[in-house]
Write a protein that binds this DNA or RNA. Structure first.
Lengths: 215, 215
DNA sequence: CGCTATTTTAAACAGGTGTTTAAACTAGTT
DNA sequence: AACTAGTTTAAACACCTGTTTAAAATAGCG
């Protein structure tokens, strides 16, 4: 395997588990059995390495997601919200084929990206892969036309939060759940559970926003 | 103001904005106009300072939340999920009185705590303030008795994710929303919007979990 | 005042960070 | 075999990290 890929693989799991700030280049290079300077030689800087790790996933995910959502939008029958969110399952689980546990690390990394590094990764994703957001918005708009653009904006970000946050701590949560409820489950099981939740959340009836009464 | 409080105030906003790992003691102490060694003198270590910052909020929040939820549980009429989540509003907004911008920083800090520092803060909160979780579970159980304990567990963590994640990036989101939709809003407005979402999510109909079909 | 206990201060500590350098090594090509 | 371009290597760079030290300053009290 090439040095570049060895670095990407090691950085992937370390970033997911310890965050971008929490992972040093020395940890990455020693995990990858590679010289320290190799990161700067092949990627230029740590920041560029972070981008490369994310791009590896996004380049695989983005087109699959786009086609799944546009298929849904072009269908005769209006899709349900549940179907819109289910459209994410196949592209996400496909990441597992091209890399073991790809789904979980990708979603963990996404969560890291939102909280670490003061949002530079959010900037990177929204500018480099804007289609993912616009396609998603379109699909939701078809499934629930009464929702205003602003409501969609907020509810989609709530959904991002639910997914990303859940997945970034999914290992710990699965551990707790298996202890407390004696019920075996994995990432796919968590996804099965979260979809009805976010579908119902996005599909919540529209409530007029009024000033808070703190009775 | 005492040195201890000057440090707590400075650490509060810096931790919220840049994360625990991303904030150095030198940033904190220079922001607080205090000598570097003061942190270790008054708190012992950076880790203890983090705990102190969180405890300041939790000690204020926990009893208010407990009484609000138990009031709801003891009422004759069965509460709705919307009411259960609304019970959080007053205790959360009360944090604003006891410290300026208290609400926003607290939820941001909560978000940091889940992703930074490999979950030591989650351990701290669940062991030091377990009532918050059990009371919440009880209230949801009354409002939606058909939900199994395991389903409640998952949906409450989904809700945590929604809230915490949204609030930890609330500033950025509010900025975007104001640009795109020309609609002034603040933290309270976001809370107004997120409650119908999470109430609908937790109240989603129960779906039999089956093995995924990836057709 | 003088004594004590608490607090503040500047300096140093040992170790970790991302990045750069220049020399060594490894193919591939003529 | 000799030259070249690409890659790897160990060492050093300058800077930042949390923590500790011992001296200086401050406050509280008899």
């Amino acid at each position: 395997m090439s040095t570049k890929n060895k670095i990407l693989d090691a950085a992937d799991v370390l970033f997911a588990n310890k965050g971008f700030n929490g992972t040093s280049l020395r940890e990455i290079t020693s995990q990858a059995n590679v010289n320290l300077a190799a990161v700067n030689y092949h990627f230029g800087s740590k920041k560029e390495l972070i981008k490369a790790v994310m791009s590896r996933y996004m380049d695989e995910l983005s087109p699959r997601l786009e086609s799944a959502l546009s298929l849904l939008c072009q269908a005769e029958r209006k899709p349900t919200l549940h179907e819109v969110f289910s459209a994410f399952i196949e592209p996400l689980l496909h990441l597992n084929e091209f890399k073991e546990n790809g789904t979980s690390t990708f979603l963990q990394l996404l969560g890291r990206g939102y909280t670490d590094s003061q949002g530079f990764l959010r900037w990177f994703l929204t500018t480099q892969y804007p289609n993912v957001f616009t396609n998603f918005t379109k699909a939701v708009n078809i499934a629930y036309p009464e929702l205003s653009a602003e409501e969609i904006f907020w509810r989609l970000h709530f959904t991002m939060g639910t997914i990303v946050f859940t997945m970034s701590s999914s290992e710990a949560l699965i551990d707790i759940a298996q202890n407390d409820f004696d019920n075996k489950l994995d990432i796919a099981g968590v996804i099965e559970r979260v979809i009805p939740y976010v579908a119902a959340g996005v599909g919540a009836p529209i409530t007029k926003i009024e000033p808070l009464s703190l009775g």
